[in-house]
Write a protein that binds this DNA or RNA. Structure first.
Ligand SMILES: [Mn+2]
Ligand SMILES: [Mn+2]
Ligand SMILES: [Zn+2]
Ligand SMILES: [Zn+2]
Lengths: 148, 148
DNA sequence: TTGTGATTGATAGTCATTCTCAATAAAAAA
DNA sequence: TTTTTTATTGAGAATGACTATCAATCACAA
């Protein structure tokens, strides 16, 4: 049993919930699948690996993983909520390319520090923040110049 | 006819669209109603003022107002897209209180400057950005302390 | 004033997400 | 281990924000 699984099981116990095979299948898929995903992609990848978990259970389990800090809600793209696994990864922010959909992750300590200062100024107790920059990546800027 | 209305009319003409009474009712409501709103709140406030515009037309007009730069999509709260009027207002970022739903607007030039630098570093052409900080406002921090 | 194409409202459709509920299974108690 | 309690599951129905459809109507340019 790895660290993430242990963390999840402890969270479930703490909340009076049960450790079920379905929940473990979902967790393992989250840990092995691509870092950014939405509920449906998660459901699909579970089924590609020949595991059977219903869509409802996937949707029900995602909030549990969020609550226990293993994944986080990141962006909303085209009406869908997108998540990413955080366990074993550091916090970072995102750039999203409006041309090709590419996601660039970045982290800047000065940015984080500034936000902390701003929250202090407003006596606001930060839980989380999300910075999303939309625009065009290097490649797409060139493509758009070519087109005129 | 005020500046915003002129801008909207010009945008419509430029796009080969027509200036209709319904669109003008919606624009006026946007200009006079509260700064942050979602599609349904806009529809409701129009009807409270005894104007008749269908929900479909409200949904259809919002993107036109966004395209012409009079309003902007800000946050997504509980599955709803939230907008705010920008005409006559400067860019700013938001804090959202998880306790009472209050929205605090703030602007920090150093933060903006840093973001510009970061985009340059990645050769990313920024179109817009959105920083949302979630947490608890001063009042709600106190309330939560009282409860334990 | 007329002709053409855009717009409207009513309503049906879409699609992600949530709810319902009977059958089942996990964990606690015995 | 067996029983009891309670959470969980899957299937499908429901929800709700938003979008598409379409016939009737309107804006506006000529
Ligand atoms: Mn990421
Ligand atoms: Mn604002
Ligand atoms: Zn790109
Ligand atoms: Zn508050």
């Amino acid at each position: 049993m790895n660290k993430a699984e242990k963390k999840f099981r402890e969270h479930l116990k703490r909340e009076g919930l049960k450790s079920t095979p379905e929940r473990m299948v979902i967790l393992r898929e989250v840990l092995s699948a691509k870092k950014h995903f939405n509920a449906d992609e998660l459901y699909e990848s579970i089924h590609k690996h020949n595991k059977k978990v219903s869509r409802a259970t996937v949707y029900r389990t995602i909030p549990l993983l969020v609550e226990c800090g293993l994944i986080i809600e990141t962006l909303r793209c085209q009406g869908r909520v997108s998540y990413e696994r955080t366990f074993g990864f550091e916090h970072h922010d995102h750039m999203v390319c409006l041309g090709c959909g590419k996601i660039i992750e970045f982290k800047d300590d000065r940015l984080e520090e500034l936000q902390t200062q701003i929250c202090e100024r407003y006596e606001f107790k930060q839980v989380e923040h999300r910075l999303g920059i939309r625009g065009y990546c290097k490649e797409c800027v060139v493509k758009r110049l070519d087109k005129g």
